[in-house]
């Protein structure tokens, strides 16, 4: 695998995760638990879309086949998408949405904090911009995890249920393959083994405050590194891509 091929795949991994998580959060727009929170979640979604936009645009340049960010977002199938499985999980109730966001925010925070040191200037620049947004996202989602964990009996048990559904998708975020090893050698990518303990500490700290426990079953699902997804992604993409695919000659 050449550096270029590896970088392209690496960028898809990052861009697709932001894209799909943004798409999921955007489903809440107009349906939030109260107006202020509806707006807050939309802001997060907008930041993620902005990140996806810059990363996929760069991916297109790296690939060098003239594909734009829109070509990549709207004209790839589910077997060509590399987003983390956790990002595509259904919104469920607000507990699940918040917990999903928290796990992703905590990952992104430590991940992009390291990636700003990448020898790839573009990747370093994108990371530097993203990290400010992510710092706020993490503050928002952790405060909500604490609120819902401690709020009422109902909110606590909803959080436990969400934990049970989502925990199994957190492991693969740290998985590395040939893409990583090629790029780590070049100083472009970062070692996810170094991100993991930071993520675990943060999660432990917030879950403790929220009086929540990690589930007993710690088996981890995997697949996104090989573009193998849960059944959700196909539905997300068929909705998201329907218009550009139905009129392939049209410009929007």
């Amino acid at each position: 695998m050449t550096t270029k091929e590896a970088l392209f795949k690496y960028l898809l991994r990052l861009g697709d995760t932001s894209m799909i998580l943004a798409q999921r959060n955007a489903e809440w727009c107009g349906h939030g638990p109260f107006l202020e929170e509806d707006l807050a979640l939309t802001n997060i979604s907008l930041d993620l879309l902005g990140q996806a936009n810059s990363i996929l645009q760069y991916a297109g340049q790296v690939e060098g086949k003239g594909r734009t960010e829109d070509d990549l977002a709207f004209h790839r199938t589910e077997r060509e998408y590399y987003n983390h499985l956790i990002a595509e999980q259904a919104n469920g109730d607000y507990a699940k949405t918040i917990l999903r966001q928290f796990f992703c925010d905590a990952f992104d925070f430590y991940f992009y904090s390291e990636l700003v040191k990448s020898k790839d200037e573009m990747l370093a620049a994108i990371s530097a911009k993203s990290i400010k947004e992510i710092t706020y996202h993490l503050r928002h989602s952790s405060s909500w995890v604490e609120r819902l964990g401690n709020g009422t009996d109902e909110s606590h048990s909803r959080m436990e249920k969400a934990m049970d559904e989502l925990w199994r998708f957190t492991g693969e975020m740290f998985e590395m393959n040939e893409v990583d090893s090629v790029l780590i050698k070049e100083g472009i990518a970062i070692d996810l083994n170094a991100v993991r303990p930071k993520w675990e500490n943060k999660v432990k700290e917030v879950l403790e405050k929220a009086t929540l426990k990690i589930p007993a079953n710690t088996f981890m699902q995997r697949g996104s590194r090989d573009a193998k997804h849960t059944e959700h992604l196909g539905f997300i993409l068929s909705e998201m891509q329907s218009l550009p695919r139905s009129l392939p000659d049209a410009k929007w």
Partner: peptide, 20 residues
């Protein structure tokens, strides 16, 4: 103005609502 249940939420909501 805005609605919020606690101080941290009020601050975050103000950010999301009035400094877009």
């Amino acid at each position: 103005n805005l609605h919020a249940f606690d101080k941290e939420m009020a601050l975050q909501n103000a950010r999301d609502l009035y400094t877009r």
